[in-house]
Write a protein that binds this DNA or RNA. Structure first.
Length: 447
RNA sequence: GACCCUAUCGUCUAGUGGUUAGGACACCACCCUUUCACGGUGGCGGCCGGGGUUCGAAUCCCCGUAGGGUCGCCA
């Protein structure tokens, strides 16, 4: 029997990073086994479920590169979809739920109570055999001992989560339910429901949760809880995917940077850990830097141009070769794209602000004649290229009897406004003689 | 309160009875580079506690403790 897994988010307006990982694990399992990955939208909460909220989910999955074999094609609940087990929006499946409720009612497995419909839950402990957690014997809690039955249809006619979730998994032929461990206790209810329908439940695999850095539960409000944060802050989807998969899963051989094809080949449920993991932003940053460094040039340019555009810098005003040359000096030096405008903005904007502490130290009266001398030499340089620029600076330093750093630091500050940035000689070459000398002059005027 | 899950460096993890407890991120030092980043070398740092079982426990069992989850006419 072919594997069928699903990701069934509720469109609340954002995609939780934990949800993204759940989707990833499901997707990887489907791809690993040659099965189907199904996307189902649990939009029963009509009050807050909007089409825009569905787009957040669809776009988030697309950004991560998690394509679904069955599910909606657009965020329109009544719109087109892929697959023969639709509709894939719960809001469009009311008659299916209705039929299932009636079936339970007619067989005496559910009953009406205060206008709602309650399911007759088993009084016995439920045994589960989880692919990750193992054997679990779920006893009734004290509250459940008083009344184990639970509502499956509210008095307003709306079926509840536990019910629709099970009915859909059943109708859609889901074979493996891979979801967060927060659902482990509820699984007893779900298993009982499957049995009431005379079908054997799917296999369950409960994955550990992602916690905040301090070990507390990661909720919507917490920094970094939304996938959008990583999109906005210039992370690469491949880095996010790689980082996420390592939270609760291990390839067991000390390797950490793994490509998607490698992940698909190696991912499996038995290697999923049982304990929760804390989110470590520093490690994600490191990993993002690793991916940034190996990005193909064209994609790097494209991402950089977008990043500048979002920061209000239109790089299209500059000749393409200039833009590319400028970006080439940044390649491999950034951990995230969001650092780019601050790192290389000087290529596209005038430098009006200088690092205060550095200016105090470098823009001094005694440095003025030194910089003036270097300016003269640079002005007369036949070729304004990195190699001669470096050689010249060094010979001027020697002539002046100072270390190269004495000239390097003020020049960098004058041309970029910062103390850190691309290789000095290469950035001067890209900037060109005219701009470089103008910036030197502006700095000299301040000394 | 009840029920369920979990527990190795600060963090992510390897480890399934015998290892000097390994790797990665972070941190520190040095090298490379007169910026930053990368890279290289070295360092710091861990089996939650207590009982068992065993010739021998990070590994198995029990009890604590701690963290997380669930007990809704939320999903």
């Amino acid at each position: 029997m072919s594997v069928r897994v699903r990701f069934a988010p509720s469109p609340t307006g954002f995609l939780h990073i934990g949800g993204a990982r759940t989707a990833l694990f499901n997707w990887l399992y489907a791809r690993h086994t040659g099965g189907q990955f199904i996307l189902r939208i649990e939009d029963t909460d009509t009050a807050r479920n909007t089409q825009a909220a569905v787009d957040v989910i669809l776009n988030g999955l697309r950004w991560l590169g998690l394509d679904w074999d069955e599910g909606p094609l657009t965020s329109d609940a009544t719109g087109p979809s892929h697959g023969g087990r639709g509709p894939y929006f719960q809001s469009q499946r009311k008659d299916i739920y209705q039929r299932r409720v009636e079936a339970l009612l007619s067989r005496g497995l559910a009953y009406e109570h205060d206008g709602a419909v309650k399911f007759k839950m088993t009084r016995e402990p439920v045994l589960m055999d989880d692919l990750i957690v193992g054997h679990v014997r779920r006893e009734l809690t004290d509250r459940e001992a008083v009344d184990p039955d639970f509502v499956i249809v509210r008095s307003d006619g709306q079926p509840v989560f536990h019910f629709v979730n099970v009915v859909d998994d059943l109708e859609m032929g889901i074979t493996h339910v891979i979801r967060g461990e927060d659902h482990l206790s509820n699984t007893a209810k779900h298993i009982a429901l499957f049995r009431a329908f005379d079908v054997s439940p799917p296999k369950y695999a409960h994955i550990p949760l992602i916690l905040n850095a301090d070990g507390s539960k990661m909720s919507k409000r917490d920094q970094g809880a939304s996938l959008a944060t990583y999109v906005d802050e210039g992370y690469l989807p491949e880095a996010v995917v790689n980082y996420l998969v390592l939270l609760g899963w291990s390839p067991k051989d000390n390797r950490e940077i793994l490509s998607i094809p490698e992940l698909i080949e190696r991912f499996d449920l038995p290697q999923v850990l049982r304990h929760n993991a804390r989110f470590d932003m520093a490690k994600l940053q490191w990993m993002n830097g690793e991916y940034m460094r190996t990005l193909p040039d064209d994609r790097f340019y494209e991402l950089c141009v977008h990043t500048f555009a979002r920061a209000g810098v239109d790089t299209n005003r500059f000749p393409l070769p200039y833009v590319k040359a400028a970006l080439d000096t940044c390649k491999g030096k950034l951990k995230t794209l969001s650092e780019l405008p601050g790192y290389a903005g000087f290529y596209f904007n005038e430098v009006t602000q200088f690092d205060a502490a550095a200016a105090q130290k470098d823009f001094t009266p005694e440095n003025k004649p030194r910089l003036q001398r270097l300016r003269e030499v640079y002005a007369a340089l036949p070729e304004f290229n990195a190699a001669p620029l470096e050689a010249c600076l060094k010979s001027v330093a020697a002539e002046l009897g100072v270390k190269a750093g004495v000239l390097v630091h003020p020049v960098r500050l004058a041309c970029t406004g910062k103390t850190a940035g691309p290789s000095l000689y290469h950035l001067l070459e890209v900037l060109g003689r005219e701009k470089s000398l103008a910036r030197l002059d502006a700095a000299l005027a301040r000394m």
